[in-house]
């Protein structure tokens, strides 16, 4: 029996989603495994969002945790001060992050700050915000601010178990992937990829580089900002150390290693690399303190050497082979649908 490629894709997606939905129920007694899968999803969301600005538009953005921190502080402050639910804080956090992205992105793209200069500027942004929030006593300051503790409160988005956080993260991830996929197939997506490949050439062909990049940056900032609200609730406090340059770079690494511009690439990288790193940390971290970081970096270097297009490409080729076997359609082997 021949199956259509689209049907096969759908079934596979459904199966994957069902597995993702069922994971926490299978491991629900083990809090460690739960926090681990939730952390994987967190980085999956961040890297998937990064794919829009980094993967498609080709802007090496190193400021993920700037937007995450803004979202966390917005929602955390609203909750601590005025008892506003983080569900609302999430949207507002996303908006604050977006607003900030406009504030930063507009002049940057207007004055054609790009490539390494964009990377440098964005990484400086994280540090600037960190200092600013340490000094801004009303909201930040050097002392941690705690979120009220509840063992299970939907209104406060505070739970004694990670299961709800997992599903919230999963929901954001699904949204991020859908947004990614939609953009990938829209006019904006083609413009962005054109810009990512050769900005000057794209502009000559009439692509409005400034507007497109700004749109990409705004969408990315909103998703990351909203995630920041969940991040604050999950860890139970807000602190300027959330503006972490190292973590921001990690997000970019996941995006690059996953495969620039491929929708599921960053997620794939997050699943593989974050869990591998955590596995190494948990098994080696106590005995040979920094060995796991060495192994982790060697793995990254090997991927960069042998799969410079990202691990997603490897999976895509394997998947296409499988697909051609199942559908008996040789065409899928050569298919080159962008963004998939």
């Amino acid at each position: 029996m021949r199956i259509k490629a689209t049907t096969f894709n759908r079934v596979l997606l459904g199966v994957l989603l069902a597995i993702a939905l069922l994971i926490p129920l299978l491991i629900r007694t083990n809090q460690y495994n739960l926090v681990l899968v939730t952390t994987v999803l967190l980085f999956g969301v961040l890297a998937t969002a990064w794919n829009i600005i980094g993967g498609m538009a080709g802007q090496l953005d190193l400021a993920a945790f700037a937007y995450l921190g803004l979202g966390a502080f917005t929602s955390g402050t609203l909750l601590i001060r005025w008892n506003v639910s983080p569900w609302i804080g999430m949207i507002l956090g996303g908006l604050v992050a977006t607003g900030f992205a406009v504030l930063v992105g507009f002049p940057l793209f207007r004055f054609r700050v790009r490539e390494v200069w964009y990377a440098l500027t964005s990484s400086a942004l994280v540090e600037v915000l960190k200092v600013a929030f340490v000094m801004w006593e009303d909201v930040g300051g050097p002392v941690e601010r705690y979120l009220p503790y509840y063992s299970f409160s939907l209104y406060h988005m505070r739970f004694g178990t990670y299961i709800p956080y997992y599903y919230i993260m999963l929901a954001i991830l699904v949204i991020a992937i859908v947004v990614n996929y939609r953009i990938g197939r829209s006019k904006l997506g083609f413009y962005l990829r054109a810009l990512g490949e050769d900005e000057d050439a794209a502009e000559i062909l009439g692509v409005d580089a400034r507007a497109c990049k700004l749109k990409a940056l705004m969408i990315y900032a909103f998703i990351v900002g909203a995630t920041g609200a969940v991040y604050a609730c999950m860890y139970g406090f807000i602190h300027p150390s959330f503006f972490s340059g190292a973590r921001s770079t990690e997000v970019a690494i996941l995006g690059i290693v996953g495969g620039m511009g491929i929708t599921y690439g960053p997620l794939l990288a997050a699943v593989i690399l974050v869990s591998a790193r955590e596995f190494l940390r948990a098994s080696l971290g106590g005995q040979m303190e920094s060995l796991y970081l060495v192994i982790y970096s060697v793995v990254l270097i090997l991927i960069a050497l042998f799969r410079p297009q990202g691990i997603a490409v490897f999976f895509r080729d394997a998947y296409r082979k499988l697909l051609s076997k199942v559908t008996g359609d040789e065409h899928v082997l050569r298919a080159n649908t962008p963004g998939i």
């Binding site: 809090q31 952390t39 406090f237 972490s244 973590r247 971290g285």
Partner: peptide, 17 residues
Amino acid sequence: VEDAGETADSARLGAES
């Protein structure tokens, strides 16, 4: 012995682990 890393998420993971 377990490593707590240097961020809130790694400390949390370490504690659960």
